[in-house]
Amino acid sequence: MNVLYFAWVRERIGHPMEEVESEAETVGDLVAELRAREDRYEAAFADVSALRVAVDQKLTDFDAPLKGAREVAFFPPMTGG
C-alpha cells in the first residue's frame, strides 16, 4: 500500500510518500511496524494522540482495519480555513 505523510509528519520522516509491504491488520499495527524501522519514524509516531489518519482518503481512527486498503495517510490535526 502507499503510505503518505503530511505537514510536520512528512518533515520528520523525510519524504511525502512510500510504498510499504505490510500484513498489518489495523492502522495501529502499521504504526507499530513503522516505528520499529528507524528513529525518524519513532520520532514522528511517538505520540499518536497528536496524529490523525485517513485510509483511502477517509478520516478514520487507529483501530481501523487495513484489509484491502490502498492508501494510508498520517498527518497532524488539520488547520484549514
Binding site: 505537514a7 510536520w8 485517513a54 498527518f75 488539520m78 488547520t79
Partner: peptide, 19 residues
C-alpha cells in the same frame, strides 16, 4: 472546513517556519 478538511498551515517569519 477548519478541522475536517486536510489543510495544514505553516507560518514563515524571517528564517523561521512553524506549523
Amino acid at each position: 472546513l477548519k478541522s475536517r478538511a486536510p489543510f495544514w498551515k505553516k507560518e514563515h517569519i524571517g528564517a523561521d517556519a512553524s506549523w
